[in-house]
Every structure is written in structure tokens, then in C-alpha cells.
Design a protein around this nucleic acid. Structure first.
Lengths: 208, 208
DNA sequence: TTAAAATGTGAGGATATCCTCACTTTTTCT
DNA sequence: AGAAAAAGTGAGGATATCCTCACATTTTAA
């Protein structure tokens, strides 16, 4: 989990030695764990530092603000997700709508399972105006748009954009279902959402 | 994180005179406004009391906790929504999937516009474990299940339940789109989501 | 009228969080 | 070795929130 992107919530002091980079990585990991357990608001800088085995001052050396910490994490997630989407797009030529839908749902679900803090941050972004800069959504939309371009050749640019928004919302719904605890019939519901996505994709590529 | 009594959401002292009821109504309204402007976490009890023109002590007289306040608001919203869903179900016999989808999206969208705090609370419930008791989702699911029963007679009970979950998620997605600020092509995206819902509903009622 | 019940008040205690800063320790480089 | 740069430390200041409590005011009913 490297700090791939530059300074949008710039580190007060960027790490320049190896130890610094390791510390930053440990801090980000601890932050992710705390965000998952307590949510963005509930997580405390003191708690994050403690979990990383660092002093509070160390944390503030690299991240001047809780918000900067969250933004750094989100940027890393956005990078990873965009790459995965591109890889999927490259392989998706000729797939049926059903298969494409299944792969898309699977991709986001697996990512969420691997990085639970991603969901926590996405939820927090809805409430916290400070996190509105996340731009994860925009990057995902663009990735999806490029993916869809190959599957619905007849669509105008505006329609393609709208379709990307729709597909993203459907994927998000599937991910939300995955996070709902103790919902009876979750598997069936997930299959239903996947079906809805497949139907929509098929409708998209059908010659009007 | 101070919490005096673990009285789950009950008013410390229920209003018994007319003035008490008016005050409670004013406090709830002020709370809704604050939740919209600052979010559940950002809203403060002091701010809510001030906005209602009441002293902080008055607020705590009726709502022992911020959580109790939110739960009371949410209960009112759940009641209203359930009623509206039932009214829609009563009129929906014979509707095409397209029309049903349009009406469902319209219903939730209008509710969200009329009661913006509903969305704020729904978002907060995802993060705040204290609000997990909301149960709004469960009641909506049940309402939808009954509505769908008339439109897909062949379905088993478990399938009906799953379908209700799917439809609720699709409606939520549509509502989320409505709240996204400054998204270009929002109308087109909304139409796309409605189309996905219609396709899913049609697929549901098609004889397998 | 008058006492009891309901409602209203706001200063302040308890607690919690964010973040600073003066300082120490470790690493790098000449 | 020695100096400079980077990384590390944690007590505490500033601030903010939740909620209590002892008491004042208004309404109801006998």
C-alpha cells in the first residue's frame, strides 16, 4: 500500500529514507484497520498511532490531518481498483452480458473483502464533506466507460457515460449487499442483482 | 462517549401537555435540519436546541441522547414510507413493469426531496453502529415484498424476499443518484437505472 | 386560590479529540 | 569521526461535545 499519488492532503514531511516509508505504510495499515472497526469519525489519531506502534507525533509528521490520512488511503485504493478494471477490460472482448456482469460483481466484491476500509471510506465520503475530494467514483466511472465502449459499439458518448454511471451504481448495490450482516437469503439477492445487471448490459448492446 | 441510562430510544419524559408536544415537534424538525446540514456526527445537541429556540436542558428532557433523537426521527420516516408503499401497492394491479419501475423510483425520490434528513440518517446508519436499530430497511423490504407478490404470482416465498431486496437496492441507487451533486447526465443515468429496474421486474414476472 | 405537575433554563463537570512543539534518537554522508 | 538531515517522542494546550443538576416558570386541576 504505497502512497502512489502526490500531495492532495500533502504529507507535512514526505518520507525520504527507507524507515520513513515503512512507517508510513504501517500507519496507513493501522488507519485502515481503525476505520474498519470504528468508522472514519470514530477512529482517533491517537488510536491509529498506537495501533501502528508509533507515537502520536510520528503520525502527525507524515499526515498533518486525519483527513489527509483518509485521502492518502483512498488514493491508493483508487489506483489499485483502476488497474484491476483495466485488466478486466482487456480480457472482456466477446464475453456475454451474463459473464461480464458476473465478473464485474466479483471484482468489486473481492476488492471489498480484501480492503474493508475501502467500504468504510466510501460510506464516510457520503457524510463527510471533507472527503468529497475522493474522486474514486469518477475514476471508476471512467474505467467502466472504457470497458463498456467495447461492448456497446453503437452508443453515443453521452449514453456511454450514463451507462457507466448505472453500472457503477449496480455494482455498488451488490457490494452493499455483501456488507449487510445477517441478511437471510443474501446469496439469492446477490444473484438477483447480478441478473439485473446482466439484463441491463444485454439491453445496452442490443441493436435498437 | 458518556451515556447515562441505556434507555433505548425512549423519551426521558414523554410530553403530556400540548406545549410539550409542540416542543417535541419543533425539536425533531430542528434535528432534521441540522442532520441535513452537518450530518449525524456533525450535528450537535447544542445546535439543535438553539435552532429549535429551546434551551439545551429542554432538549435533554425529551431526548436523553442524540441517538434517541435520531431513532425517533427515523421511526417517523419509516411509518410514512410504509404507508406510501402500501398505497402504491393497492393501486398497482395490472401495471406494466415499466410503469411500476417509474412509480417506485418516483416515490422514493419524492420522499427524499421532501425529507432530506431521511437520506442523512440512512447514510449515518451505515457508519454508526448505534443506529443499526433503525429497521427502516426491514420495513421497506416487507412492504416491497407484498407489492411484488401481486406482480409475480409464480414466485416462491424465498424468491419473493430476494426480489424485494434487489428492488430496494435498485431504488436506493436511484435515490443516491438524485443526491449526487453536479453529475453531468444525471437525468440520463436515472433513466438508465429505471430501465434496469423495469427489465428486472419484467424478468421476474415472465413465466420461467 | 393554591398546590402539584409539567415544562423550561443554562452554567459547568466530565470527558475526549485534534494537533503543536521543544526535544531526543537514529541514519546518512563527507 | 563529526555534522547535518531525517525520523521519533509524548506531555499538554486549545477546543469541543455530551449531558447533569438545582432551580425558575408555566399550566392544570382541585
Amino acid at each position: 500500500m504505497r502512497n502512489a499519488s502526490q500531495n492532495s492532503g500533502a504529507a507535512r514531511r514526505a518520507p525520504r529514507r527507507r524507515r520513513g516509508h515503512e512507517r508510513v505504510a504501517a500507519l496507513l495499515e493501522a488507519a485502515a484497520a481503525c476505520f474498519v472497526e470504528k468508522g472514519y469519525d470514530g477512529a482517533t489519531m491517537t488510536g491509529i498511532a498506537a495501533r501502528a506502534g508509533a507515537a502520536i507525533g510520528s503520525l502527525y509528521q507524515f499526515f498533518p490531518t486525519k483527513e489527509a490520512l483518509a485521502l492518502a488511503l483512498a488514493a491508493a485504493y483508487a489506483d489499485a481498483l483502476e488497474r484491476q478494471l483495466q485488466r478486466l477490460a482487456a480480457r472482456s472482448a466477446g464475453w456475454t452480458p451474463e459473464h461480464l456482469a458476473a465478473q464485474l460483481v466479483r471484482l468489486l466484491g473481492a476488492f471489498r473483502r480484501r480492503h474493508p476500509a475501502f467500504a468504510a471510506l466510501a460510506e464516510a465520503a457520503a457524510t463527510q464533506p471533507a472527503l468529497r475530494t475522493l474522486a474514486v467514483r469518477r475514476r471508476l466511472r471512467e474505467g467502466l466507460r472504457e470497458l463498456l465502449r467495447g461492448h456497446a459499439p453503437g452508443l453515443a458518448e453521452a449514453e456511454l457515460q450514463a451507462a457507466a454511471v448505472v453500472v457503477l451504481q449496480l455494482m455498488k448495490a451488490a457490494v452493499a449487499l455483501g456488507g449487510e450482516p445477517g441478511l437471510s437469503g443474501r446469496r439469492a439477492a446477490l444473484a438477483g442483482l447480478e441478473r439485473a445487471l446482466a439484463l441491463y448490459l444485454a439491453d445496452l448492446s442490443r441493436p435498437a
